[in-house]
Design a binder for these strands. Structure first.
Lengths: 121, 121
DNA sequence: TTATCATATGAATGGTTGTTCATGTAATTG
DNA sequence: CAATTACATGAACAACCATTCATATGATAA
């Protein structure tokens, strides 16, 4: 026999009034989807290191490649992801492309996250 | 011919002094790895919705299943991930298990992220 | 006890994604 | 002009992960 109550309990196991209130007060789906997408971009070791580096100084791809000690192609790919998410912006200077943080929220997010980590132990 | 300078440019394309300073002032690797792991946990549509719901009220799994309109198994799996990351905590009450946010940082992260989204448009 | 309910969990799977390799492009230099 | 440099990008591959299905556990009720 299949489960015919895919979305909710059979009887009164939950509080319908609370559920209803939460449903109406929750942020809209588009915002939640974008929010998840934002954190997904932040949820990568390489990208976090890039952002932490850019918290300290404007840097070209070459600098980042040196700091991270990894493939230039990999760095460029991740910079593209960060650019698309509007977390970093770039400007050309001769042959180089210089990257900076695009937003003050980025450093706030990283700082808050770091606090959470430290207090977790 | 292969590329023998995997970690850095050949000559002086970058600023060694800046790179050196960034290297020393960057957070340690363990913290950055944990930070990426934290954001990775936040970077999922289902988990974001769970956290947003728990921002509004303590809820049992059944409530969440109803609010999210999805499989109970999927919800439980994601709650496990959130518990392991110390983002939520649970207590038993009869047959039910009630979940709440474990940390004030969580709501701060969500709020800051939401602001970033809103200002992006 | 047995039956039922709420939740947890292991296995399997389909989709996503980070890295590498190879190549392309734009700017500079000789 | 050709050669080199800094960066970007497309394809391919491997690893990871969210969901589903099936089942297990733990608590309550009959």
């Amino acid at each position: 026999m299949q489960d015919h109550r895919a979305e909710g309990c059979q009887e009164e196991c939950f509080h319908p009034d609370v559920v209803e209130r939460v449903r109406t007060e929750m942020p809209g789906e588009p915002l939640q989807e974008e929010l998840a997408q934002l954190f997904k971009v932040l949820g990568d070791h390489t990208r976090i290191r890039i952002l932490n580096a850019l918290c300290l100084s404007e840097l070209c791809v070459c600098d980042l490649t040196s700091i991270l000690g990894m493939n230039q192609s990999a760095v460029s790919h991740q910079l593209r992801v960060l650019r698309d998410a509007k977390l970093v912006k770039s400007r050309k200077q001769g042959k180089n492309v210089l990257y900076t943080l695009d937003d003050t929220h980025v450093s706030t997010l990283i700082r808050t996250g770091s606090e959470h980590i430290r207090e977790g132990k």
